[in-house]
């Protein structure tokens, strides 16, 4: 076993462990924190695949932004009801194999062709910042600028819908 393999197994197993802990931990906040942790391990796997940009985005966007939002919502709702994860959740138990089967059906064709991907030229796999950002600042410059307008509209919306009612 090389060092590469060792690191891969460490990240994979830790990822799976975190996934299970997300499901079974009785506290919703703890579940959310385990999910953040699992994102970090997933980012580690991306680094092993030399997809550095994806790894960085994974940490920044998912762990940094989306999950923090999740945690805020959980804490805001003050959701304290704790119960065992399997309790009365028959529908979930029935749905899990279905979801796994659907995922397998989607992944199998890809895995079958993994040999062809291995023979593909090297530059396909370059997930560097340069490759991602060049289109953003050349070809897709205008769409990026328009997202600024979207953010402006969203900000106005939040202010309008969220401000306190004026006292008449």
């Amino acid at each position: 076993m090389t060092a590469y393999d060792a690191i891969f197994w460490f990240f994979s197993l830790a990822l799976l462990l975190c996934g299970v802990l997300v499901l079974i931990s009785p506290n919703a906040v703890a579940s959310g924190l385990y999910l953040v942790l699992s994102f970090f391990f997933l980012a580690g796997l991306y680094v092993l695949l030399q997809a550095f940009f994806l790894a960085m985005i994974q940490v920044l966007v998912y762990a940094g932004a989306i999950m923090v939002l999740f945690l805020f919502v959980i804490m805001l709702l003050d959701y304290r009801e704790s119960r065992h994860w399997w309790h009365g959740n028959l529908l979930g138990l029935a749905g899990a194999p279905l979801a796994v089967a659907a995922l397998a059906a989607a992944l199998l064709p890809v895995l079958k062709r993994s040999g062809a991907l291995a023979a593909a030229p090297e530059q396909w796999f370059e997930g560097t910042l340069e490759n991602v950002m060049t289109p953003v600042f050349t070809r897709y410059l205008l769409p990026v600028e328009i997202t600024a307008l979207i953010l402006l509209a969203a900000t106005i919306g939040v202010v309008v819908l969220g401000r306190k009612e004026k006292q008449p």
Binding site: I146, L149, I150, A153, A154, I156, G157, V160, L161
Partner: peptide, 8 residues
């Protein structure tokens, strides 16, 4: 941009 504006 159109859709998000219309949400508000």
């Amino acid at each position: 941009l159109v859709t998000i504006t219309f949400y508000v």
